[in-house]
Nucleic acid binder design. Structure first.
Lengths: 150, 150
DNA sequence: TCGAATCGTTCGAAGTGTGAATGGTTACTG
DNA sequence: CAGTAACCATTCACACTTCGAACGATTCGA
């Protein structure tokens, strides 16, 4: 008989982060549907919101995603009026994306929505616990090259 | 002019958990490839490891996944010798899955792998920070019905 | 014993993302 | 100042994952 599992897989941060991230994203995705958006659309808007207007190819690099995917994401965002898409006059190969006022409002809606889900998700935590979680996730995310605001 | 963003989307726990979870899962998936496994296979083995041998349909409910998906996951695990699949003599409609010794070893490999990634991921955290993160994620995961061990 | 419910399986379909090929634009090089 | 190479966006075909409906086998209820 082997010894008892010293540290089960379920205790690993990787496992817990992955599984919990998946259910949280599922909830977020559901809520987002009312705005005609999916998480990647939001990711694109976040990238546009913080930083100079980049070309679609740069966006693809930032989001670690295929350039062809940026095309379809931008197509949709343009269709609902959330972004402007203009050829860069200085280099007419580039397509420069920029959030419209509508896009900024939409992003604000997503933000409100996320924070509402936050309260729901972390209702059982104390204030300091919640802040510690937020801070630690932000730190690890920043190390992984994810968008942050601290 | 509206006021400055009071709390950007990127500070929300939902956002950070979702994005970080996604990159962490990607790393885990890559590492898992050497064992001929994908995250859902591991999820199935975890479910089998902790608890009485359930039918495939129960597994599907536990994993919140379609029964037909459990079939293909179990097919693969059986092919590599990680699980036994026997008809329940008491009810020959049921297919009862159980980890083999090989399966338990494989699960131990996954566990070691996850904890190795843990160290890599949380290298910049202090010990207490790492434990607080683990604990909080476990708590929220348990509330969401995810497998735990506390 | 007969019909309804249950379990597992197969199969077709939807959704998501990638990579190769294409057309238009710019930059380099002799 | 050609002509070629590199670059950007786009389209399209494809792979992958997952689901839901249909089906056969088995069990349960009346």
């Amino acid at each position: 008989m082997n010894d008892v599992n010293p540290l089960p897989l379920t205790t690993s941060v990787v496992f817990r982060l992955g599984t919990l991230g998946s259910v949280v994203t599922a909830r977020f995705t559901t809520a987002l549907a009312e705005l005609e958006l999916k998480p990647k659309h939001v990711g694109l808007m976040v990238a546009l919101d913080s930083g100079a207007p980049p070309s679609q190819l740069e966006l693809a690099r930032i989001m670690a995603v295929a350039p062809s995917l940026v095309v379809s994401l931008a197509d949709h965002l343009e269709r609902i009026g959330a972004v402007d898409r203009v050829r860069d006059p200085a280099d007419r190969r580039r397509q420069v994306l920029a959030l419209t006022d509508t896009g900024r409002e939409l992003l604000a809606d997503c933000t409100a929505l996320a924070h509402r889900l936050d309260e729901e998700l972390t209702a059982s935590l104390t204030g300091p616990e919640r802040e510690a979680l937020r801070r630690t996730l932000g730190l690890l995310g920043a190390e992984a090259g994810l968008p942050t605001s601290d």
